[in-house]
Design a binder for these strands. Sequence first.
DNA 1: CCTTTATAGTTGTATGTTCAACTATATTAT
DNA 2: ATAATATAGTTGAACATACAACTATAAAGG
Lengths: 137, 137
Amino acid sequence: MDNTQLFRLIGTISRQATSEVNRSASVYGLDNNLFLYLIRIVEQDGISQVALANQIKVDKTTLSRALTKLTTAQLIVKRTNPKNKKFKQLYATAKGQTYYNKVYQMEQDYIEAVLKPLQPNEKAMLGQLLTKISPSE
Amino acid sequence: MDNTQLFRLIGTISRQATSEVNRSASVYGLDNNLFLYLIRIVEQDGISQVALANQIKVDKTTLSRALTKLTTAQLIVKRTNPKNKKFKQLYATAKGQTYYNKVYQMEQDYIEAVLKPLQPNEKAMLGQLLTKISPSE
DNA sequence: CCTTTATAGTTGTATGTTCAACTATATTAT
DNA sequence: ATAATATAGTTGAACATACAACTATAAAGG
């Protein structure tokens, strides 16, 4: 396998995973990556939009509109940081926590299925290698 | 790093790569993954749409419309398989080949940059591990 | 055969994505 | 201090995506 095949494989694996988890999450109305945003907000309470966008490498305008959907669904709230009014901090509601539990489990089920072919030491190695090529900022 | 972090990292790396290569390819009007489809068609002359969709894990209706764009731009042609009229085979035109050279080089440049942190043996290992978790069909 | 079922590809439609440009706030430089 | 610059977030508009449902062709079953 050459570098090109390797690189393209990452995209294929990712598209497959994204499609499949989104289809599962659509049961809760959390497709179009809404599940992903909710998960990150629950796990990083108070994060700002741009920080979140940079972390997961999604377009900030796409994220802005997706977060409006999560807000309308009352799964999160946007609170302007009183110390610095430029920032809106994101918090999950109680309802958001409940939905988080559902989609988190879906993600875990998918992860377990997809990583099943790997031994623990192989997973450790894969994690290290991916970390080396992960976006810096 | 746990399984969850590992899995999410694949998505992050892929989103970053997709965004960046698409932005580069937009110079040639080949963003929205058009560059990706063109590359695969050139490298697998005569492939059918569903076969291509399955291979790269994209929705067949999205692919159908994207290929209409490539056809309009005269980069590919769709030819009904005379042996089996259900299939439309995809072929690059001479113009498509020329554009292929451009976007292929862009992809190569990105690949070189992103895989630079890895030693040759690490790349071999990463390729093996990704192959193990790649979608079967 | 010929009816049923399966597969390839397209289209309608609702919704999502993303670029450019904008507002609002904060930071930096003179 | 205040003008210039930078950053966070939103919005308009053009276009892409993906589900459901469709047509067309072929394959399988009786």
